[in-house]
Amino acid sequence: MTDELFLQPQTPAPAPDRSGTPLVEMRDIHLSFGGVKAVDGVTINLWPGEVVGLLGHNGAGKSTLIKVLSGAYRADAGQIFINGEKATIQNPRDARRYHIETIYQTLALADNLDAASNLFLGRELTTPLGFVDDDAMEAETRKIMARLNPNFRKLKAPVKALSGGQRQSVAIARAVYFNAKILIMDEPTAALGVQETKMVAELIQELKRQGLGIFLIDHDIHQVMEMCDRASVMKNGQLVGTVDIADVTEDDLLGMIILGKTPERAAPETVQ
């Protein structure tokens, strides 16, 4: 990860340039669980330096859709393009190869292991002989934690013993440490206090500036209006529409979530 992370005073990141090839395109994704269509022909996309909010009720299919991208689920049908090239993502390892990192709502931490072991889980640093190098991993963890969450001290404790905010910062550190190009955040601030939420918002701005594309699942409409460039709304497994945040109001978004209707003012985007 780069050294300039999180150090500058916050200025809003520039608006994303959507003229080039999208970073991610998920085309016509279908996924059913035993007859229930969890994701039903959804198409969404994401450009570099852009934050796209994914909205919808519980069970609308947001998390399922995103898990197709992160490799946790395999779609029944549909295609994924990364930088315009067809990508095959069959498991989380594949997703990591495409520099897709995910912060899950559940955080997906092994509670019995310490912060460093979690941060490097599946990608351990090893000594020349191939043994796990705990000291090197602890040193790296200290470095990134010093920037992400300066109050983080409990490096040796199992993450079970950490507070919600501290656990969250371990999950975030894991996602940003490995030079992610595409970041998926599933309710990253759900368990956080005001101060910590602000830190995450600043982090998102910083990552945007570095050209990452971010999918953000969030229930807080206000937060989505603040942090996102566009929003894709889902209902009953289908895409209601994708709108530019600049074109809509909070009420418009609420209308889309509840009624499943795209406001007339914001013409639905045509997706290639």
Binding site: S70, A72, N91, P92, R93, R96, T102, Y104, T106, L107, A108, L109, A110, D111, N112, L113, S117, N118, L121, G122, R123
Partner: peptide, 13 residues
Amino acid sequence: ATGGNPDAAELSG
């Protein structure tokens, strides 16, 4: 890791 959280282990590749 798998003993502590099988899902997390799976998601970590």
